[in-house]
Write a protein that binds this DNA or RNA. Structure first.
Length: 343
DNA sequence: AAGGCATCCAACCGCAGCTAT
DNA sequence: GATAGCTGCGGTTGGATGCCT
């Protein structure tokens, strides 16, 4: 497998393109097509290597390139596709007309990745980070500052630290549970401990987590996730992804009945398990269509995921965890109000 | 106003896959 | 099958710009 020597050749210009060079390249390609990139520079009268010409054309000069800020829809598409495809920028770009792989890659690295990290999600797996406790000192500092500002510092540091540790543990449980409830990407390249197939979520640990989660005393001293003090959403139009199940207002008859919540969630698992991996209720079914760009009306998750997530949402809205632990967590990354609170 | 720092993004580098010989 | 050449892709770099002190 030989490497192209073109860029190593001396005497060829490198660096930013001048308007004159752009014009030469455009004129040539519009007349003749690019043909062989290696031969193109000479034919077009450019002192560049073919690779540089190709890059300049595909990333900048191509007439169908869309410029400007990424829309929220595009952001969402990138998030969705990246959760399935990983760093396959060209594949992702093929679903975003007018956007180049380079542009998407830059956008990911400068915006979306940071959002995920700050939210406590692993940008590679799109799942909650398991090392949540490593960020505890930072969270403690944030919340302590907030407490001081809100309440004049009536709570001691130790008391807050103890409370926050309990809350962080609870949140870790929530995130882990949510991790289990999410479908894995196609290549399934997660680290140790991630569920690799449906059977992996049937263990007692999952059920114990559910029980633990639901037995938490939500009505007494509801936990406060730093920066996530959400008021119930009144204006649905203010949510950028209003097509999603509304977790704040969704009500089940068993909202305050922990036992029913556990039963409901376990029943949901049972349905999925009894119907097997190919069940339409199985949230682990990955859409096979190559055109995965979601339309607003097709964004609702599979039945099982919706139901369980709503169960989670009930608990979460009661416990002020709302924005963090629902199954549509990625949508929240785009909700600036939420993100700014965290930051 | 000026210097330092952070962010953005166009462009480069090097590897991998494919095809031709 | 081995080798060479070409293209595409993803990671990284560095200059330009903006922001902060």
């Amino acid at each position: 497998m030989g490497r192209s020597p073109c860029c190593d050749e001396s005497g060829l210009k490198k660096g930013p393109w001048t308007p004159e060079e752009d014009q030469k390249l455009m004129n040539y390609i519009q007349k003749n097509g690019h043909g062989s990139w290696r031969a193109l520079p000479k034919l077009a009268g450019l002192n560049r290597c073919g690779k540089s010409c190709r890059l300049r054309w595909t990333n900048y000069l191509r007439p169908d390139i869309k410029r400007g800020k990424f829309s929220q829809e595009e952001e969402q598409t990138i998030l969705n596709l990246h959760s399935i495809l990983g760093n396959k920028w060209s594949a992702i770009a093929s679903h975003l007309p007018g956007r180049t792989d380079n542009e998407i890659k830059n956008f990911w690295n400068t915006h979306l990745k940071k959002k995920l990290i700050q939210m406590g999600f692993d940008p590679m797996t799109h799942r909650p980070r398991t090392d949540i406790f490593s960020s505890l000192p930072h969270l403690l500092a944030l919340v302590n500052l907030k407490e001081l500002l809100d309440h004049g510092g009536h709570t001691s540091w130790d008391e807050q630290a103890v409370r926050l540790q309990a809350e962080a543990a609870q949140m870790a449980r929530l995130q882990y549970l949510q991790c289990l409830l999410q479908p894995p990407p196609a290549n399934n390249s997660f680290g140790a401990g991630s569920p690799s197939n449906l059977n992996d979520i049937t263990d007692m640990e999952t059920i114990n987590l559910l029980s633990s989660l639901c037995s938490y005393q939500l009505d007494q001293n509801p936990p406060q996730y730093p920066g996530a003090n959400f008021e119930p959403v009144q204006d649905h139009n203010s949510i950028p992804f209003s097509h999603l199940p509304d977790l704040q207002t969704y009500q089940t008859p068993s909202l305050n009945n922990n036992k029913d919540m556990v039963n409901q969630a376990e029943d949901q698992f049972a349905v999925v398990l009894s119907q097997g991996q190919n069940s339409p209720n199985n949230p682990w079914n990955i859409p096979s269509s190559s055109n995965t760009t979601p339309s607003p009306t097709s964004m609702a998750p599979p039945v099982a995921e919706t139901s369980i997530s709503n169960t989670m949402g009930d608990a979460c809205s009661t416990s002020s965890f709302g924005g963090v632990a629902n199954s549509a967590w990625s949508e929240l990354l785009l909700e600036d109000s939420f993100f700014n609170e965290i930051a």
